[in-house]
Design a binder for these strands. Structure first.
Length: 543
RNA sequence: GCACCCGUGGUGAAAUGGAUAUCAUGACUGACUUCGGAUCAGUUGUUGGGGGUUCGAGUCCCUCCGGGUGCACCA
C-alpha cells in the first residue's frame, strides 16, 4: 500500500491485471473491498489433480533429518487405564504419526511410573487379603486385578482410620498410625533398600499390570518404540542434580536439600532433591530427559503429552534443562490437554465414577455391531468379520470424537453422544470412504484418467480440497494439533458426498467424464485413508 | 492471595489481526424408477459485560463476571 501510494482497490486492480498478463493459468480476477480474487483456468486444476494421482505417498513430506521423541500415555502401575488416558493416548499417537508424515523421525515412548507408595499400597492389600490371587485364578486382566487391590487398600485403610478416631485419636494421627499405611511405608522402604522378597512381589505385580496394558494398547492399535521406567530414571536424575550443583546452577540449603532459583526467569525456586537425598518428581523427569538424549544422540526435540495441570511443571523442567546446557531443551514442547469430564461432572476414583478404558471400548464395539446388524449391512458377514468391522467403527467413533476437539480445551465425554454416528463423526467419514471404495471396485474396468474435461463446481471443490492435504499435514505437525487434520477429513468427506449426490458417475455423458470422476473418487479415497490413518483410525472398504 | 488455561447459535466445536463469523447437532421442511439414505438440499439461531489499541478485534491490551487448573521435601 505504501509502495503503490494508492487505494487498496486500485492497487489490487493493478496487481490482478499484471498477474493475468504474465500467467496463463489465470482465467480472471475481481476486486472486492480491497481483496483481490483470482480465478484459475480449469486446466490448471485438472493438471494439478493428475500430478497428485501419480504421486506415491501423497501428502507425506520428505525426511527433514529432525529426530523427535514423543512421550505419551505414561500410566501409573496401580490401576487400569481410564478415559483420561485415552485422550492422552489418542493425542500422542496421532501427533507421532503426523510428525512422522511431516518428515521427522519419531520415537514413540512412555515413562512408566512403576515405583512409589501407590504400588506399595496394592502390594500390601494383596498380601493382607488375597495372596493367592493371580490374573489366571481370578480371570481378571492384570491391571484390573492390581487396581482392585489398590481400591481395597483404600477401603480398609479408611476403616482403620475411622476406628482409630473413635478411640480418641486425632484424624491426622489416625491417618499416620493406621496399620495398613505403616505397612505400605515399610514396604516402600524395603523396596528402596532392595529387599529381595519385596522386589520380587513388586516385579510380579507390575508384570501383571504390563500384560494388561499391552492388551489394551493392542485393542487401541497403539504401539511404542521404547519404554522408560521411573524405577530406573530417578537414579540418573540424582546424578544430574549433583552435576548441576558442581556447576553452581543449583544450590544447597542448610538442611541438605537442593534447589534451583528460577526467579530471574519469572518462575519460582524449585526443590530438586529432598534433604534426606531422596528424589522428587522433578528429579526423575530430569533424569528421564537426559537418559533419552543419551539413548538418542540425534534427538533434537521432545514432545510431552501430559495433562494441563502440569503446565507449570514443564515450564520449570524445560528451563532447568536449558540451564544445564542441552540444546534440544529449547525445542521441547508440552502437548498439554484439558480434562475429560462426564455429563455428571468430573471423574473421581473415590466415588467410583471413573470410566474404565477397556469397558468403554467394549461398550462402543457392542453398540457399533448392533447398529451394523440393524442396518442389515452385516448380513453376508461371518461373526468374525462383523466383530472386526464393528471394532474399526467403534474405535473411529471414539478416537475422532476426542481428537476433533483442540487439545487445550476441557471436554465433556457423553457416551450416548459419542456413539451417535451422524454428522461430524469418525463413522461418517468411514462411510464415505467405503462409498468411494465401492465405486472404485465397480470401476475396475475403467481407466481412471483425465482427457479433456471441464470440471463442474462440485468437482472443482474436491480438487481444491485434495490439493490441500500436504499443507494440512504440515500445519498439524507444526501446531501439534490433530484437530486440523480431523477437520480436513470431515471437509473432504462432506464435499465428496455433495458431489456424489449431485453428479452421476457411471451414468455420465461419455467415457471421458466417467474416467475423470473415477479418478476424482480415487483421490478422495487416498486422501481420506491417509488423513484418517494419521489420526490412528483404520478405514474399512465396506461399512 | 498469586500464576496459567477457557468463555462463540438451545447443545458441541472452527476461525496467521482481515471480506457478510464457519461447521456439526437439535428443531422444522423437502429429495430415493439413479453408482450404498449412517446421504443430500433448505429454514431457524451466535462472539460473557465494560473500556482501550487499530484503517480493521471472536482474536491484542486493561478491567469486571463466570468455569477450570496449578502454587507440597506428592507424583
Amino acid at each position: 500500500m505504501k509502495l503503490s501510494k494508492s487505494k487498496p482497490e486500485e492497487t489490487a486492480e493493478a496487481i490482478g491485471a499484471a498477474m493475468q498478463k504474465q500467467n496463463a493459468n489465470i482465467k480472471g480476477y475481481n476486486v472486492i473491498k480491497g481483496f483481490l480474487n483470482i480465478s484459475l483456468n480449469s486446466t490448471f486444476w485438472t493438471a494439478a489433480l493428475k500430478e497428485v494421482s501419480n504421486v506415491d505417498n501423497y501428502g507425506f513430506h520428505p525426511k527433514s533429518g529432525d529426530k523427535v521423541l514423543v512421550e505419551f500415555s505414561s500410566p501409573n502401575t496401580n490401576k487400569p487405564l481410564h478415559l483420561g488416558h485415552l485422550r492422552n493416548i489418542f493425542l500422542g499417537d496421532s501427533v507421532s504419526n503426523i510428525l512422522s508424515a511431516a518428515g521427522k523421525e519419531v520415537v514413540r515412548t512412555q515413562i512408566i511410573n512403576d515405583r512409589g507408595i501407590h504400588i506399595c499400597k496394592s502390594m500390601v492389600a494383596y498380601e493382607e487379603f488375597s495372596p493367592e490371587d493371580t490374573p489366571e485364578s481370578t480371570g481378571l486382566k492384570g491391571d484390573r486385578l492390581v487396581g482392585d487391590f489398590y481400591v481395597r487398600f483404600d477401603k480398609e485403610y479408611k476403616k482403620q482410620v475411622g476406628e482409630l478416631i473413635e478411640k480418641g485419636h486425632t484424624e491426622e494421627k489416625a491417618k499416620e498410625e493406621a496399620p495398613l499405611m505403616q505397612k505400605a511405608r515399610e514396604t516402600l522402604k524395603k523396596w528402596e533398600s532392595g529387599d529381595e522378597k519385596t522386589v520380587a512381589l513388586w516385579e510380579k505385580m507390575n508384570g501383571w499390570v504390563y500384560a494388561g496394558f499391552d492388551e489394551t494398547y493392542e485393542t487401541l492399535k497403539v504401539t511404542f518404540d521404547k519404554l522408560y521406567h521411573e524405577s530406573q530414571t530417578y537414579l540418573t536424575g540424582k546424578d544430574i542434580v549433583r552435576e548441576g550443583l558442581d556447576k553452581n546452577i543449583f544450590y544447597k540449603k542448610d538442611d541438605g536439600s537442593v534447589w534451583v532459583d528460577l526467579t530471574a526467569d519469572g518462575l519460582d525456586e524449585k526443590l530438586l532433591l529432598r534433604g534426606d537425598g531422596t528424589a522428587v518428581y522433578m528429579t526423575q523427569d530430569m533424569g528421564t530427559a537426559v537418559l533419552r538424549s543419551a539413548d538418542y544422540p540425534q534427538m533434537n526435540s521432545m514432545v510431552y503429552t501430559v495433562g494441563n495441570e502440569q503446565d507449570y511443571h514443564f515450564q520449570v523442567l524445560f528451563k532447568i534443562l536449558e540451564k544445564l546446557g542441552y540444546e534440544w531443551a529449547s525445542n521441547c514442547y508440552h502437548l498439554s490437554y484439558g480434562m475429560v469430564e462426564l455429563p455428571e461432572g468430573k471423574m473421581k476414583s473415590r466415588e467410583g465414577t471413573v470410566v474404565d478404558a477397556d469397558d468403554l471400548v467394549k461398550e462402543m464395539k457392542k453398540n457399533a455391531e448392533a447398529q451394523g446388524v440393524d442396518r442389515g449391512s452385516y448380513d453376508d458377514l461371518i461373526p468374525e468379520e462383523r466383530k472386526d468391522l464393528a471394532s474399526k467403527v467403534a474405535l473411529a467413533a471414539l478416537k475422532y470424537f476426542i481428537l476433533k476437539v483442540g487439545p487445550k480445551k476441557n471436554m465433556t465425554f457423553d457416551p450416548k453422544q459419542s456413539i451417535d454416528l451422524n454428522g461430524d463423526t469418525g463413522p461418517f467419514i468411514q462411510y464415505t470412504f467405503a462409498r468411494t471404495a465401492s465405486i472404485l471396485s465397480r470401476a475396475e474396468n475403467t481407466n481412471p484418467t483425465i482427457h479433456d474435461v471441464e470440471p463442474n463446481d462440485y468437482e472443482l471443490e474436491i480438487i481444491k480440497i485434495v490439493l490441500r492435504l500436504p499443507e494440512v499435514i504440515k500445519e498439524s505437525a507444526d501446531k501439534y494439533n490433530p484437530f486440523l487434520l480431523a477437520a480436513y477429513c470431515f471437509d473432504t468427506a462432506k464435499a465428496y458426498n455433495t458431489f456424489y449426490q449431485n453428479t452421476p458417475i457411471f451414468q455420465a455423458e461419455n467415457e471421458a467424464v466417467i474416467a475423470f470422476r473415477v479418478l476424482l473418487t480415487a483421490q478422495v479415497n487416498k486422501v481420506l485413508k491417509t488423513g484418517m490413518n494419521l489420526l490412528g483410525i483404520e478405514m474399512p472398504d465396506r461399512f
